[in-house]
Write a protein that binds this DNA or RNA. Structure first.
Lengths: 203, 203, 203, 203
DNA sequence: GATGAATGAGGTTTCATTCAT
DNA sequence: AATGAATGAAACCTCATTCAT
């Protein structure tokens, strides 16, 4: 956790630091990223960095949390709360699209997450055992889909959740070119959804 | 490319070095992996390392090539050559399973590939533009599936190839726990295939 | 260029570092000189060295600049500015003597310059094409001498400039024994000047 | 001294080694030059190198001797033996020209000598005190010139010898561009001689 | 005598973190 | 709180030389 000092900082300065961190961690893996570069780009002294964070990992953890929260905020909460008004596949579509919107508006955050996912050692260190909240989310959703009779009742929800989770990531990866996303490329999202729907719907 | 000296080494020693390299690179990303550790674990002098490889990256590249070749060798070549004897989904199943067999027998090689995939900078440096041979392979296969009338003729092959590629990886990831695979867990592979088949087959 | 950090250092410490550098580079060629030795002798950590200079070459370049400036400062500027009050050979004598005075007071700087001059590769790297400002200086002087009618009007100024430049160096070399100069050995400078004067004066 | 083994080598092989050594030492100072490069370029095993020479310095010493001898061989011995038939300045001219001829035919040997001259430590180690045979040669010549009444009887022969020695080197340097010499550029040699003659002749 | 693999000391450089002001 | 200089462990890499075959 960042220190109290950090949270007492003027918003603007805190932003500058976060920005600089994002910039560095989106370009380089945790180990290659340099504290010096972050401090420099944020325009703060290296010493200050250690007044705000315990160490490099402390900032990194905080960043991951921030990112996770931000990503969640892209999901239309109303739809989830009133999910009964929508079909399962409509909800799924919303989840997919929220991922895309998030990536479009925060392209630099995408590789940060991906790099962490690849670094099992670090991942374990940060989250210990419970490292797939993402899957849990999809699993809940799928269960609901089964209950509503839209999803194949035989389906293995753990497997499906994992697949959906992975596909979301991959979709973002596919449409992101050089850190940019062509949001208008709507067709492709629906193609994937079409594929998924055929794959898992109840027949 | 490793030096001639390296290839002149007795098989046993070469293996020790490769083993040590795999050990290090499967645990740590390229940047965190240490030449010193590799040399130590291989039981050779640090100086010797540099008689065999130009630098850390040289060994790494060589390792990736070796891994790629090994992975390919797990695909049943006969089936590919006589693909007309098999249905498309039978072929796809073979490809999936080959990935699993490879992962089961070489569990430490899996994270090496995954870490590389996450390090865009390194990936680019090693392979430049043509970095998705994996996708190409699936695209060929899918095209064949369309020609045989088994795959949805409307399907976007680029998208599908990407998805299949990603799903293969994810499947391996899913069944690998602490570097071990439960091969007998056959059911899950077929579940995924079932899902995929429903998703993309011609109706 | 040294970093800002270096220039922020207390004068005393900066001097210690420069001293240590001079000590090392006056004894050993650029390639044999060791950063470690410099850091040790300056009483700073090796890491600090790299906070002050980009690398060994950075310090070396800076040292050469410093030396060049210092050497220039030994020339009596008044004489150059009011050169019309003096004969050409008087000016030349002043230039010669300035070289001697510089060498006498900074004996360790002499071999540094000489070693660089011998390392064509390094020389080229540092100065690119324009690496004989020394010659230019003498050429200007000689031109002036011709205009005043003191120097043989037929003389090839490029050649003469080169010769004078070389002779200055050699004179210093000659009178420097074990890094010390016997300044009182005035006679020898005049002998050389006598020789030069006879060689190039207008008849 | 090279080992007997070296001298027993077939002429052709010995030449190859010497060639490779010249190539390396003409490009790099003693310390930067690499034994490995020499062995490689000579097409011999690294181990063999140490069968022929005690160490890098041993080869270097031998090379310097060879060069010195070769350089001497360019002086017209007949003229020296029958020096009475020629004037002093004719002899001096011959010595100058021999230096030029040597440089023209062995351009790579020139920088080797120059680099050594700049490395006082090495120079001392190789030749101890008596490191100016070159000067001695010129001193003998000048003495003879005085005796014949052609050279200023007041002249300080040590100084003049030094100057002549230095000027010879510098002349070579001046006309050598990129390791090549324009021998037809005869005029310049005579200009320098003219200058020298005026400088030191008896009046 | 020839070979080429093996060695390790030693060099340069990087960087997270500490600390004095 | 802020600064930025100081540190040193540890990484990569080079190369002369030795040694077993």
């Amino acid at each position: 956790m960042p220190t109290e000092t950090f949270f007492n900082l003027p918003e603007e300065k805190r932003q500058r630091i976060i920005e600089a961190a994002i910039d560095e961690f989106s370009r380089y893996s945790f180990h290659k990223a340099r504290v010096t570069a972050i401090a420099d780009n944020a325009g703060i002294a290296k010493g200050s960095f250690y007044q705000y964070f315990e160490d490099k990992k402390d900032l990194y953890k905080y960043l991951m949390e921030t990112i996770a929260k931000k990503k969640m905020s892209y999901i239309n909460k109303d739809m989830l709360l009133n999910r009964d008004k929508y079909g399962f596949f409509q909800l799924l579509r919303e989840v997919f699209l929220s991922g895309i919107r998030f990536a479009k508006e925060n392209p630099r955050l995408v590789p940060i997450g991906e790099m962490l996912l690849a670094d099992k050692e670090l991942l374990h260190e940060l989250y210990g055992e419970n490292m797939d909240r993402n899957n849990d989310f999809f699993k809940q959703l799928l269960k609901y889909g089964q209950e509503k009779g839209e999803v194949d009742p035989e389906a293995d929800l753990d497997l499906l959740a994992h697949m959906l989770s992975v596909l979301t990531y991959s979709l973002v990866d596919l449409v992101m070119e050089d850190g940019k996303i062509d949001m208008d490329d709507m067709e492709i999202y629906d193609k994937m959804l079409y594929f998924v729907e055929n794959g898992i719907k109840k027949r």
